[in-house]
């Protein structure tokens, strides 16, 4: 049950679906902060300085990975699951993470 999300960018159908030939960087205005709890999304790109991205990269949060907000902290900051690990972020950071929905990828 390893997650093929890095190599495959599923389109249209089920989240664990087909293989797209070229994972292109899409323009999307959807941010991690816009995603409701328990919805799985794919990370598209970061809009923040490199030195702030690196800690995220080290923990496997990189373009192509699946993120799922599982909870909000008492202060309203997101806690997301990535690769079976729970990560707490600040909403400022989450607001700089561009994501796309799997289901909404349909036209």
């Amino acid at each position: 049950m390893t997650d093929p999300a890095t190599e495959a960018v599923p389109t249209r159908r089920a989240p664990r679906g087909g293989v797209h030939p070229q994972p292109s960087v899409e323009r999307t205005d959807l941010r991690l902060t816009d995603i409701s709890l328990d919805e799985v999304v794919e990370l598209v790109r970061f809009e923040m300085p490199d030195d702030q991205i690196e800690p995220l990269l080290e923990r496997g949060v990189l373009p192509g990975c699946r993120l799922c907000p599982v909870r909000r902290s008492p202060s309203g900051d997101p806690i997301v699951e990535v690769d079976g690990v729970m990560l707490a972020l600040r909403r400022e950071t989450a607001g700089c993470i561009c994501v796309k929905r799997f289901a909404a990828a349909a036209d």
Partner: peptide
């Protein structure tokens, strides 16, 4: 740096 990590992730994924 993003690509370096993507590469690391690929290696780890394949190993898994």
């Amino acid at each position: 740096v993003v690509d370096a990590f993507a590469e690391r992730r690929r290696i780890v994924r394949e190993a898994g």
